[in-house]
């Protein structure tokens, strides 16, 4: 994806865009090594509160999936009318650290989704309202 101006992000703190692919950011417990997404203030595993930033990466394996078949109520702010709503995929993607990240998926076709398939991170304009800059969030796409 190429963009002329920096994209408006729903969750800028969760993403690092300076490299080639967007990368997910989390945190790691300095005491026990447990990894978190999103970044956590403390470790729910060992109860320590000494965390460091951790780069989760851009690629993983599809761990579970569903298709969001109806338009969510607020706080969802996709901005489309109910008639224009298009179902979207949602999944957990297992990252190399073992953490599973919940994410929108770029495909919403059950036949195209399979647990274990390789996925790659991208940006998706989930909110596109006329007269406004589109708002992007992270999403996983099937790896080519």
């Amino acid at each position: 994806m190429t963009l002329d101006t920096p994209p408006k992000l729903a969750c800028p703190d969760q993403l690092e865009l300076s490299g080639g692919l967007p990368t997910l950011m989390g945190s790691r417990c300095r005491n026990c090594g447990e990894v978190y997404f999103p970044a956590s203030q403390g470790c729910t595993r060992c109860c320590a509160i000494d965390m460091e930033p951790f780069t989760l990466g851009s690629e993983g394996l599809l761990w579970s999936w569903t298709i969001q078949g109806f338009q969510p109520k607020t706080p969802y702010n996709g901005g489309e009318s109910e008639a224009d709503f298009k179902p979207y995929g949602v999944g957990y993607v297992e990252m190399p650290s073992g953490v599973k990240v919940e994410s929108r998926l770029t495909v919403a076709d059950p036949a195209a989704l399979r647990i274990g398939m390789p996925m790659v991170l991208t940006l998706e304009a989930y909110r596109q309202v006329p007269g406004e800059a589109p708002v992007f969030t992270y999403a996983f796409a099937p790896a080519a």
Binding site: A10, C11, Q14, S64, W65, T66, Q68, P72, T74, P75, Y76, N77, G78, Y88, V90, G91, Y92, E102, S103, R104, I115, Y126, R127, T137
Partner: peptide, 19 residues
């Protein structure tokens, strides 16, 4: 952002866990 981007639904969770 978790709610705004359409990820915070109980129905989704039940589906993901069941799947």
């Amino acid at each position: 952002w978790y709610g705004e981007t359409g990820l915070m639904l109980t129905t989704q969770f039940f589906a993901l866990k069941t799947q």
